[in-house]
């Protein structure tokens, strides 16, 4: 008979074990906020379909103090979301060569972040031009 009795450790609370796992979980949680905000925007679209008054009502609602606080929180969360996903993006891409040199992970992350900043500024610009 074998005296082997391999011991399997519990995974309870695994995500608290390492700061790296906490950052990972934070990244995953930001996706919930993205979904939440998509619902807010979708609601706006429904109100738009119901006519001008309904849409303006929705706009007014967004300006209430609670909604402003919500937006500030969401802004911070989205910034983390953007950073964390572009940070992992190089891992999702095949090895790319440009001019005989390997494209570095930092370049991929940097390009992604720059593109999102440009996209945000462009949207701001367009909205400013319309109002």
């Amino acid at each position: 008979m074998s005296n082997r009795r391999p011991y399997v450790r519990s995974m309870d609370g695994w995500w608290k074990r390492d700061p790296y796992f906490i950052r990972y979980m934070a990244r995953e949680v930001t996706a919930v906020f993205v979904a939440l905000y998509a619902i807010v925007l979708l609601f706006g679209l429904v109100r738009l379909g119901q006519g001008e008054a309904a849409f303006n009502g929705w706009l007014q609602y967004l300006k209430t103090p609670w909604m402003l606080v919500f937006h500030l929180i969401v802004l911070a969360v989205f910034c983390y979301h953007t950073w964390s996903w572009f940070n992992i993006m190089p891992k999702t891409m095949p090895i790319i060569f440009m001019g005989g040199k390997r494209l570095q992970p930092g370049t991929i992350t940097g390009t992604g972040l720059a593109a999102s900043v440009v996209a945000c500024l462009a949207v701001l610009f367009i909205v400013r031009g319309m109002s």
Binding site: Y20, F21, Y24, I88, K91, T92, M93, P94, I95
Partner: peptide, 25 residues
Amino acid sequence: TAVGYCSEVCPKGVDPANAINQNKM
């Protein structure tokens, strides 16, 4: 799920997270 810690701890710079995730497409 692209945690990415494997690539961080690998002593040989293998970057397993990259090997895995580039295959999902």
